[in-house]
């Protein structure tokens, strides 16, 4: 009896969480520029799949280009960040060097003041480096992250130290221990960091909005916000079609990577 009650509660909550998405898909299939449908007519009589074609191949808003930009930036940041942060995390967790503790606290503290406090100086810095309005401007600030260093370090601390010691006795260098022993064993942590990073870069809005200006350099997230203005705030079917196009790849990637999210969040919560 209690189980049925819990199950019903979960179902109700699921409906509440999913209803907005269903609503979005239904509206996206109404004729473009049609008035807002009443809830009784929400299910379109003739689904307008052409809306998706209109959005994807719109001459004013190059959605395909946005998509490509998002992929380039996300992939570059994920690869760069995995390499740079895993090097640092390895040193902090496994090499007992002078200053490791200090560095760790510096990284941890920096997580407090990211975002709002650093936006103007980072913008001015990128401007004086002549990097504004380029894909590099979107990639370089993401190449390292204190949060990722922290996650990988936590994982590496949990591996047995006999591994490194045995390797050192055999004459292995730090680099060999890092690349041949530690990294292959850290695949779960690296996968978690990769999925987190991918999603946070893909959905980043504020920085790409500031750092890029030309249409051909916009990412999907910023492009979508432009779309909202250029198609008129009342053209709901096309807006919702654009929203579906943005969300669909993310939902698919998420369904394949979700267990890494769960793991990662739990790792970060256990300090």
């Amino acid at each position: 009896m209690k189980r049925i009650f819990s199950w019903l509660a979960m179902l109700a909550l699921a409906i509440f969480l999913i209803a907005p998405f269903v609503w979005m898909v239904l509206v996206s299939l109404h004729p473009a520029k049609s008035p807002i449908p009443d809830y009784k007519d929400l299910i379109p009589k003739q689904p307008q799949w052409g809306n998706y074609k209109l959005v994807l191949f719109s001459p004013e808003v190059p959605v395909g280009r946005f998509f490509l930009n998002s992929i380039i930036v996300a992939v570059a940041v994920v690869i760069g960040q995995l390499f740079i942060t895993s090097l640092a995390a390895y040193a902090m967790a496994r090499i007992k060097f002078k200053g490791a503790q200090f560095l760790f606290w510096l990284f941890l503290a920096s997580m407090m003041f990211a975002g709002v406090v650093t936006q103007i100086p980072v913008y001015l810095f990128m401007r004086s480096a002549g990097l504004l309005d380029s894909l590099s401007a979107l990639i370089i600030p993401g190449l390292s992250s204190a949060y990722s260093v922290f996650l990988i370090r936590q994982f590496l601390l949990g591996l047995p130290f006999e591994l490194d010691e045995a390797a050192y006795i055999d004459g292995a260098s730090y680099w060999v221990v890092y690349s041949r022993i530690m990294m292959p064993l850290s695949k779960p942590a690296l996968a978690t960091v990769a999925s987190f990073t991918f999603f946070s870069v893909w959905t980043d809005f504020f920085w790409p909005l500031l750092a890029t200006n030309s249409m051909r350099l916009r990412t999907l997230e910023v492009g979508l916000s432009i779309f909202k203005n250029s198609y008129g705030t009342t053209n709901w079917p096309l807006q919702m079609a654009a929203a579906v196009i943005t969300l669909l790849p993310m939902v698919i990637v998420f369904l394949f990577s979700q267990r890494y999210f769960t793991k990662g969040i739990q790792m970060s919560g256990m300090k």
Binding site: I84, A88, A91, A100, F113, F125, Y174
Partner: peptide, 26 residues
């Protein structure tokens, strides 16, 4: 010690440029 600082160098430089110095600059 040298190895430790070398491995952390890229991340530390990035941290200085994109987090520590910006706070001072703000």
């Amino acid at each position: 010690n040298r190895a430790g600082w070398l491995f952390t160098l890229p991340a530390t430089i990035h941290l200085l440029i994109f987090a520590v110095l910006p706070v001072g600059y703000t």
